[in-house]
Amino acid sequence: MSELPDRRLLLVHAHPDDETINNGATMARYVAEGAQVTLVTCTLGEEGEVLVPELAHLAADQTDELGKHRIGELAAAMAELGVTDHRFLGGPGKYRDTGMIYNAEGNADVPPDTRPDSFWKADLLAAANDLVPVIREIRPQVLVTYDQWGNYGHPDHIQAHRVATYAAALAAAPAYREDLGEAWEITKIYWPTIAETSMRESLRKLREAGDTTTFEGIDPDGPMPPMITPDRLVDCVISAGEYLDRKMNAMKAHATQITVDGPFFALSNNTGNEIFGDEAYRLVKGTAAPGPSGVETDLFAGL
């Protein structure tokens, strides 16, 4: 086995762009610090909405070539962040983007007609077996993936959570599938989240700037959706600092999914530290090693 860097981080995400929105600054920071950063993306995001009018023909209900296009967007975003090891679960296109609908409660849900090759319908063990050899190859000390709600209920996010969690357990068992590599136990597992105080402050700034559509229906002073975590339950906060510009550029690289006009992005560029500068995490496996502020500022803290 070739020499591995001392610190190794694995991220498991559902679609291209999820990684940048949730963890772009974190990824850029650890690459810059010499850590091994590996991204596994579970689908090509074929069912995504196309926000670029001249590329509307790529949509799933037209030429259905959006997934192939998003491979290029992801590569461009990873180049901005400096990530050289990015892979698709089981290979590009093995698992199809499930798509989503909004249910009566206003939450993301599974569409009524899901294709048999959709990620949501994938056999959990089979999909986990596509991730186990990656874990055993790169031997990460830290895994980042979604919580049990997939942040906001998207079926592919929920499935990514299940696959990553199951694969992490299987990869650690010496008796499980020796043909998939030598057993490796991941020491710390984190779920990305948004701290409540940060969210409320960001929402106030957006509303004051005239943006009433981003996070529509959420009152800065009202109840928060499940993806927002009370500050007391946040274990680690990574500040974007000098990596904020890289995150913004990586977001722009996902052009079919993230629009760069309107008050949201204008505000992000002007006061990005408030909107995107903090990436918060909940520790769900391992022992926290908080700093003087009461939270960790390093995913590898204590290792």
Rank of each mutant, 00 (worst) to 15 (best):
D221F: 05
E216V: 01
N249D: 14
M227V: 02
V237A: 07
D235M: 03
G222S: 10
K247W: 10
P220Y: 04
M224R: 02
P230G: 08
P263F: 03
G222D: 12
E242M: 06
D261K: 10
C236N: 10
T229H: 07
V234W: 04
H254A: 11
M224Q: 12
S268Q: 05
R246P: 02
A255P: 00
R232V: 11
D231Y: 04
T259Q: 14
D235S: 14
S239W: 00
G222E: 10
P223F: 00
D219E: 10
C236M: 07
S268F: 03
P226Q: 13
T259L: 08
I238H: 06
T214S: 15
F215S: 13
A250T: 05
G262S: 12
I218H: 02
M224P: 09
I238P: 04
P226F: 07
A266Q: 15
Q257W: 09
G262I: 08
D235H: 15
I238E: 08
A253Q: 08
V234C: 04
D231Q: 10
D235C: 01
P223A: 09
F215Y: 14
G241E: 10
P263G: 01
I228K: 03
L233C: 01
V234P: 09
P230K: 05
T256A: 10
Q257P: 03
P220Q: 02
L233P: 00
T229M: 14
A250F: 01
A250M: 01
L244D: 08
V237F: 01
G217M: 06
F265I: 11
A250L: 06
V237L: 00
G217C: 08
V260R: 02
A266I: 03
G217Q: 07
V237E: 12
P263D: 12
I228Q: 03
A266S: 13
A255V: 13
I258P: 00
F265L: 13
S239C: 04
M248L: 15
A240P: 05
I228F: 01
G241V: 05
S268R: 02
G217K: 08
S268C: 03
F215V: 05
M251C: 07
K247Q: 15
I218G: 10
G241Q: 09
I258K: 02
E242G: 00
V237N: 03
V237R: 14
Y243D: 11
R232W: 00
V234E: 11
P226N: 05
C236V: 10
F215M: 15
A266V: 03
P220A: 03
S239V: 06
I218F: 04
P220V: 05
K252L: 13
A240L: 06
S239A: 13
M251E: 11
I218A: 01
M224F: 07
F264Q: 14
Q257S: 13
D231G: 03
